[in-house]
Design a protein around this nucleic acid. Structure first.
Lengths: 219, 219
DNA sequence: GCCGATGATTAGGGTATCCTAACGAGGAGC
DNA sequence: GCTCCTCGTTAGGATACCCTAATCATCGGC
């Protein structure tokens, strides 16, 4: 029953992630996320429904996972994030490169390998970007975070996660030391949606909105 | 150019391995190895030919890889064996379980991950079963080994590799301490193709032909 | 020089996955 | 209440893979 194709797993994971947001999961959003034409998504959803992974929502509309779909989605996210942790912690890969690699790894980890990997890595709580790793039982409690952009001068916080998986932004943030669990203080906010002046350790940086929107802090 | 499907890679690897033997690589043998019907193999070979990975042999017959096919095959074998090493050395998995896992892993390792993995593992020379790992440039020099069955009483040798990737036999051998690089001495050979009495460290074991055929020794 | 065995290919299907183009249905705005 | 517009789905294809059944071709004997 759990011999899912790679494609199937990709859909499951995408639905799982979208479902955690507030907005309903639509064919269009899924298609956008996966880079696949809407009709293809419709078709695959039919297969997922037939496989008992997706069901008609109890109320309202939008695509909804069954308990099993949910569980398998969580497992995939867990394997993805564990893989990222592994790539960074054991292989010393740069954190902006690990998402793509983990996308491939997550589909080939057996429960056995997953378990041993988690253990060897010291059962990490989060991925390198700060996202919580679902537990083995599929439970996933995400922290309450808000974008740095929302803070006002004088506010302090600790970086929880970066809402971006790869790319130039991550390299930039790493070069400034803006990593998860780093305390930051907003010193000032320029008017007209201008940059935030942020203190990190002994340094101060002016960060544009595009950047501060992606930095989620707690506290 | 190097966006091979998993299937394609499987064929490439199988041809690569068969090509190292003396006998010509035939559709039938490939089909047997891969567990795929001969017509499907023919068809895939057509695709491989179109992709410039397989060519008509310069002389004689049999399926022949192009230089590129050869290189990609070697890379796959390298990734497979590195993966096995990783699973055993880092994840402490039993050596009889790693082949299946590595079969999946080998298809998702990027050159970057492959390189870092090799480095972290200390650039191992062989896989856990004793097979040589192809170098990064694709070169693969295999040792000259002979099955334990060929030795005569009094002969000593060092286990080079085990000609089996998984299964009960590997567990049995591990339980006796018959691992690669272990010195062994043949004490006696029972007549009529009987068992060999083999000394390993301080112990002595009677091993049947099925077992000694699979233990390849050097020296 | 014919003949059967053996191995490779052709013929004809099936599934999964993807695409574009065309169609239909429900809600926003007037 | 009517009209679009958006979104989802249907229709119609394409490709990669895999299968079984049937054909072809070749080689060792005789």
């Amino acid at each position: 029953m759990s011999t899912r194709t790679q494609s199937t797993e990709e859909y499951l994971e995408a639905v799982f992630k979208l479902q955690r947001g507030a907005d309903p999961v639509t064919v269009k959003r899924l298609a956008g996320d996966l880079g696949i034409a809407p009709p293809s998504v419709s078709e695959m959803l039919g297969r997922l429904r037939a496989a008992g992974l997706v069901e008609e929502p109890a109320e309202g509309h939008g695509i909804t996972l069954t308990a099993q779909g949910e569980a398998e989605g969580a497992t995939l996210v867990r394997r993805h994030r564990l893989s990222e942790r592994f790539l960074v912690d054991y292989l010393d890969m740069p954190w902006d490169a690990v998402h793509e690699e983990a996308c491939k790894l997550e589909h080939v980890l057996s429960p056995e390998v997953e378990a041993r990997l988690a253990e060897q890595l010291g059962n990490p709580r989060t991925c390198p970007h700060g996202h919580t790793i679902p537990a083995e039982d599929g439970s996933l409690v995400e922290e309450d975070l808000r974008p740095l952009t929302r803070l006002v001068p004088g506010d302090e916080g600790v970086i929880g996660c970066i809402a971006e998986e790869s790319g130039e932004l991550l390299r930039y943030l790493a070069s400034l030391g803006l990593l998860p669990d780093t305390p930051v203080t907003v010193e000032s906010v320029a008017p007209f949606n201008g940059p935030l002046l942020v203190r990190v350790g002994g340094s101060q940086y002016a960060l544009g909105r595009e950047v501060t929107d992606k930095i989620l802090v707690r506290g």
